[in-house]
Nucleic acid binder design. Structure first.
Length: 870
DNA sequence: AGCACGCCGACT
DNA sequence: GTCGGCGTGCTC
């Protein structure tokens, strides 16, 4: 038997499967999706089995054997292996990178090398008998310690570098390589009363593997969990044993009596806590052999100490009911269908999700719920835990690596059937998916910025198609890509079906939104960042004891330093970007390369003293608030104040408890939050996003404004929203203020069509960087030409086959940031329509240029715009 | 990514 | 004459 294995080397040359023979001992055990240890060159690496065959085309003499299987059960399903392949093609990433993204970080391999003394007995070499004193010192050192790294050894014996090398050559020392997982199951000492048969949920996972580099030994399959010994013998009467103890051992008696009444395993710490005894008391009993003490795998449960109030399905409104019925019918027919559920904020989408999930579970199928990271708040978790209890696993970035690993193991063990989580939860190893829900589907956090640059929506659609499952994309402001797909395509029906929930559940009206023209403010002499209207609003809330949310988009508002006399702007010497002022350290820093310098007192160009930082960070808004309203209590939420684990929740809880008057923050305050006493929402500057050089900027602005507008007056108190802007006439501002999605779409779609942007085409961005401009430009031009050439050929081929395919290449031009870390950057953009063959063309051209690029130390990177490929 | 094999400058 | 620089190429 032979296995095709993708090895853990994310490089172009190794981005293919390698063949290995499968030892007979593994035959019943290895599967597609197994994580294995395989010899690769001189080392042993982690790999993933992607195929199993009875034949191989590789010369049998060159074949090596699979060394280990790393898990009791394959961590990937066949489906996920197939998905990984699809991802590598569509997003142009290495296949391992895609597969690795599906697993919790704990399963990522850690490789380490260390020096060991050779086994003298086995070796029997006569040279062993005569050792120099210095050799003996080295051997002694190594035998005292374990896992000594080569560099540590050389550091410990700085004089003996040559000697150590000789010893390695002679075989006195061996270099070994180890591989282990980054995280592992947590173990806890557990007390077993005698006579209790232990049920291990899972064979102990094989988490540690050692190999001698030269050794070609046969693999040892993971052992079963150690045989139950004392615990399964004939039961001892604990109560009677207690009598045998001397009178002064009353603590031990207590323990025995407790255990005789509760004949079940108990965590040592729990027992100690309950009976107020020390560890030595219990260990004493274990030494007598009356009880057994041993390490058992336990689950870390981040929600262990929380009680979740059980919630019953709520009665649905007519709107909700009809949406639910449609989804339920699709589920009942086991059909694949993507629904776009457009429901205004407060229309009760979550209740529809919950009931659809119930239906899905009744059918014995599983459900995945994706929410943007930011809205995975305790309230959201509570709602799902309250309805589905222990059937729910929660996955988000605030869990520790260990906690996340345990949630994932619950899924592997089939202990849960619902997963709620952020982007990466779309990969959970379910086998019978019936429903995938993506809440706030327009959110950009569904896009992964690092490789593999996937979009959770694409992946969800792919998996749902595979499983015959339904997808529900929910949003008040759907992405244009999704809206476009609800419209009938030429000659066919629509790809997605649109479901609408236009009214709010309790009939609460949406708050009035006032657009404030900041140019007007300036003209009438108000130089403050608060308009008179917003100022008045704040004043009123403070008087009435109501709360305010203030939103500031930091992007495009970075605090740069400028000389007011000559216009000099402090820039990074390595990147073409202005430096950002950091108040805490009083330094100027570059966000791209980390360069830092002291804040200057005088302008380096003209010597003027009139140098100051411009732009408005959240700190500056806070300062101004305190100045204008002495005594005001402000909670500021931005990257500076929320990096600490749990700080996010802490601030929000404080605000909810009315320990502050104003919540001030960036995007993160806009999303999914629901505070009853907030009656005023202010957007400091609506157009910062609008001015970004991004074709989606109008869409982003509309979405953001609509979302914040929904934050005010969610409960009994009526709300009010002020949007400050320098472009009050822009359609994204106007339509958002009227809560009018359709009007926005009607303006935006023609623009996109006219300029040939998504959703009318798809984009691939190719960026080339080099230290020298002339060579860079030449290469960029050649590459663009070649892309055009192949694009035209493909277009011709497609036309003759009657396929719809269009491809255009823009550029090359300098990138938006033309230099980073002393490397110049050029880019070209591939626009295409039709089947995804453009990515194949790009990847072919990149292959053609790879050799040349490597020679010149040129870096070429590709970004598939992962917004909607399917 | 590692690591080995291989061909040209400063040292015993 | 050798040690060692990192260029090139392979890993089942």
């Amino acid at each position: 038997m032979y296995a095709k294995v993708i090895v853990d080397v994310p490089a172009k040359q190794t981005n293919r499967a390698f063949d290995y023979s499968v030892p007979s001992s593994m035959k019943g055990w290895i599967e597609v999706g197994s994580r294995v240890g395989v010899p690769f060159g001189p080392r042993v690496l982690q790999g993933f089995v992607v195929e199993l065959h009875d034949t191989t085309s590789v010369d049998p003499k060159r074949l090596k054997a699979v060394r280990h299987i790393l898990d009791p059960a394959p961590p990937l399903t066949e489906e996920l292996v197939e998905l990984g392949h699809w991802m590598s093609e569509t997003y142009l990433c290495h296949e391992v990178t895609a597969l690795q993204a599906m697993l919790p970080g704990a399963l990522k391999a850690k490789y380490e090398r260390y020096v060991q003394v050779a086994d003298i007995e086995a070796d029997g070499s006569p040279s062993m008998l005569l050792l120099l004193p210095s050799q003996e010192r080295i051997i002694d050192y190594l035998q005292r310690k374990t896992k000594v790294k080569m560099e540590d050894l050389l550091e410990a014996f700085p004089e003996d570098g040559g000697l150590i090398r000789d010893m390695l050559e002679e075989g006195l020392l061996l270099e070994k390589q180890g591989m282990k997982d980054r995280g592992s199951a947590k173990k806890a000492l557990t007390v077993f009363p005698p006579g209790i048969k232990i049920k291990q949920n899972e064979a102990a996972s094989v988490s540690h593997h050692e190999e001698t580099r030269s050794e070609a030994g046969s693999p040892v399959p993971a052992a079963e969990s150690p045989a139950d010994s004392a615990a399964s013998r004939e039961p001892l009467n604990l109560a009677r044993l207690a009598d045998e103890l001397p009178a002064r051992s009353h603590k031990q008696k207590e323990v025995l009596l407790y255990l005789s009444e509760n004949l079940k395993p108990i965590r040592l710490t729990e027992l100690m806590d309950k009976l107020q005894v020390g560890a030595s008391t219990v260990k004493g009993l274990a030494d007598r052999g009356w009880i057994e003490l041993r390490e058992v795998e336990v689950m870390r449960d981040p929600y262990a100490n929380r009680h979740f109030e059980e919630t019953k399905p709520l009665p649905l409104t007519d709107e909700q009911q009809s949406v639910y019925d449609t989804i339920a019918a699709t589920l009942d027919r086991r059909e694949h269908q993507v629904y776009l559920l457009q429901g205004v904020t407060g229309s009760g989408k979550t209740e529809v999700y919950l009931q659809a999930i119930s239906r899905c579970l009744e059918q014995g199928r599983e459900a995945i719920v994706l929410v943007p990271e930011i809205s995975l708040t305790p309230q959201m978790v509570e709602r799902f835990k309250g309805r589905f209890g222990d059937e729910v696993a929660v996955m988000h970035s605030r869990l520790s690596a260990g906690e996340r690993y345990d949630e994932w193991r619950k899924i592997m063990r089939r202990q849960v059937r619902v997963v709620i989580g952020a982007r990466s939860a779309v990969f959970v190893p379910f086998r019978k998916i019936g429903l995938i829900i993506i809440d706030e589907e327009h959110e950009s956090s569904y896009k992964q910025e690092e490789s593999p640059k996937y979009h959770a929506r694409d992946v969800a659609a792919w998996r749902a198609r595979y499983h015959g499952a339904a997808v529900v994309l929910g949003s008040a402001t759907p992405s244009l890509e999704s809206i476009q797909r609800t419209r009938p395509a030429a000659g066919a029906g629509s790809e997605y079906k649109l479901l609408m929930m236009p009214s709010r559940v309790a009939g609460r009206p949406l708050p009035p939104v006032h657009i404030v023209d900041m140019r007007e403010e300036l003209r009438s002499g108000n130089r403050s960042m608060f308009s008179r209207a917003l100022h008045r609003g704040l004043e009123q809330r403070l008087q009435k004891g109501e709360q305010t949310v203030l939103l500031l988009n930091r992007r495009g508002y970075a605090t740069f330093v400028m000389c007011r006399t000559c216009g000099f702007v402090a820039g990074c010497p390595h990147c073409d970007i202005s430096l950002t002022y950091h108040q805490v350290s009083r330094t100027l820093r570059c966000h791209y390369c980390g360069y830092a310098e002291r804040q200057m007192e005088l302008c380096p160009d003209c010597g003027s003293e009139h140098i100051r930082h411009f732009g408005t960070g959240t700190q500056r808004v806070e300062e101004e608030l305190v100045k204008l309203f002495p005594g005001i209590r402000v909670i500021r939420m931005d990257v500076d104040t929320t990096t600490e684990k749990g700080s996010h929740e802490k601030w929000l809880t404080m605000f909810r408890n009315k320990q502050a008057d104003v919540l001030l923050g960036t995007q993160m305050v806009a999303k999914g939050l629901d505070f009853p006493d907030v009656t005023l929402v202010g957007v400091i500057a609506a157009d910062t996003v609008l001015n970004l050089p991004d074709f989606r900027s109008a869409e982003r602005t509309f979405q953001l404004l609509t979302q914040v507008a929904g934050r005010a007056g969610r409960h009994t108190l009526p709300g009010e929203v002020f949007v400050q802007t320098y472009t009050p006439e822009h359609y994204s501002v106007i339509t958002a203020s009227r809560h009018d999605y359709d009007a926005f779409i009607a303006e935006e779609l023609p623009h996109r069509r006219q300029l040939g942007y998504p959703p009318y085409c798809r984009l691939i961005l190719v960026t080339i960087t080099h230290e020298q401009i002339p060579l860079l430009v030449r290469t960029a031009e050649a590459l663009t030409m070649r892309l055009r050439e192949l694009g035209a050929m493909e277009q011709g081929r497609a036309a003759s086959c009657g396929e719809d395919f269009f491809m255009d290449v823009l550029g090359p031009v300098a990138s938006p940031i033309p230099r980073i870390k002393d490397r110049y950057r050029f880019q070209c953009v591939v626009k295409y329509r039709g089947e995804a063959s453009a990515s194949r063309i790009v990847s072919r051209v990149l292959d053609e240029f790879a050799e040349r690029a490597a020679k010149e130390k040129m870096l070429i990177s590709v970004d598939v715009d992962p917004q909607m490929l399917m």
